[in-house]
Write a protein that binds this DNA or RNA. Structure first.
Lengths: 233, 233
DNA sequence: TGACATATTATGTGCATACATTTTATTGTT
DNA sequence: AACAATAAAATGTATGCACATAATATGTCA
């Protein structure tokens, strides 16, 4: 004899997701209101709400007050990526991580940097270039500008030993982050640093971060041919 | 005189996030238990729970039963991307969308395709290549393999008029999706199709989808130089 | 000392209820 | 017929409570 177990929101989630996947609720159609589903499945409305919110977060359904719940016509294809913290990424592959400072100098923000950080006035910056290595081989080259006004302590950090990215992450949490992925041809310089050929296709990641309105840093990271960014959902 | 308004979970969220960002709760430290925060801020524990779950989902904190809540040392650097449905992406820029079938033929799955879809046995596939255009210019070139056994109806779809990607999304929802982003040099063929130069750096998106254990499709989409994938958080 | 059973604790979940919010539908007025 | 005021409907949220679950700390016994 089966015991009348309580449904968890996960059960409801699975049920509804199943009905969407097997087209019991086809794309574009309306899903019954929470209360009816609750009645149907035999649980509280709050439980259905919890499940529905999860489904909505994942982009399968759309909810509107009074409008009800609808299955999206084109399910939102979104992917969550873990942005590489180079050291962790390298270590995860079992390789030995290495770090090498290429250059470090104070300078005023050039046009492109000011634009990336949405600066309105000229700003003093620390310009750092560094290499991340996996088993002695170039893994990622980063070209970074750090806003000295926002992060004055950075001037006292020994960046020949410590990785600017991780120092910033641990000491300057950010509240906003802009990301861009792109492909570009390697210049002679970049090719040399990455031990690649000039003109090779590099994978680029550009990131800018702020805390509130204060600009923190903007980086462009380049990966040699063969690099891939993964995600599974 | 201010009315004693109730706190919403969003208020609690903002408060705690603020305390993390201004290092009231520094990285690695423990955050008070939900009940104490509730008592402190003057709301119900459930409200705190709601806020904490959101913060945990976003990768700022980590929660463990009995272990309590901790601020992560390296705040999860993750980003959510909306994978382009080419037509919508083009239309969003105000350009006119166009679609052009390049080739269509039935064939057995070659090695690479079988691997991408984790096929154990040889499988009959439909191989489709197509161009997405923005204002008549190449925007994205897709090379797609569709599993005929899982999606037999695809053989009856007029792919010279209808876009395989959207047809599949609307008719074959998937439960799993693998994604890869990469950069590669354009071959002569690809360059011609994308009106680029041979050897140009192309941005690549490879996607495979399944419904349950059934393989649906695997695509490689290539974008001409200048293409960027964005995300802001 | 070490291993295993047991208690404790913080988060996770389900439920019932009341009310808030938003958007649509209806009604009424000019 | 057009427009504004009003009602209605669905989801969203806050609360209190009881209990479930998982991880840690404690205690007992060999």
């Amino acid at each position: 004899m089966t015991i009348a177990e309580r449904l968890t929101w996960r059960d409801v989630y699975d049920t509804i997701q199943g009905r969407i996947l097997d087209a019991t609720y086809p794309p574009g159609t309306r899903v019954p209101r929470d209360e009816d589903i609750a009645l149907d499945l035999g649980c509280a409305r709050a439980t259905v709400q919890r499940a529905m919110r999860a489904l909505a977060d994942e982009g399968l359904i759309e909810r509107k007050r009074k409008g009800g719940t609808h299955v999206l016509r084109l399910p939102a294809t979104r992917a969550t990526f873990h942005i590489p913290v180079a050291r962790l990424e390298v270590e995860a592959t079992g390789a030995r991580y290495g770090y090498q400072l290429v250059s470090r100098e104070e300078a005023d923000a050039p046009r492109a940097v000011a634009a990336a950080l949405e600066l309105h006035a000229p700003a003093r910056m620390l310009h750092v270039r560094a290499l991340h290595l996996a088993n002695q081989r170039p893994y990622l080259f980063e070209d970074r500008w750090i806003c000295v006004e926002t992060v004055p302590e950075i001037l006292d950090v020994d960046l020949s030993r410590e990785n600017a990215n991780e120092w910033l992450l641990q000491n300057r949490p950010y509240s906003r982050c802009d990301l861009r992925f792109f492909a570009m041809k390697a210049s002679a310089d970049e090719a040399a640093l990455l031990q690649a050929e000039e003109g090779d296709a590099l994978f680029g990641i550009a990131r800018s971060t702020w805390n509130g309105a204060d600009p923190i840093t903007t980086v462009t990271a380049l990966a040699p041919p063969g690099y891939e960014l993964h995600s599974r959902a």
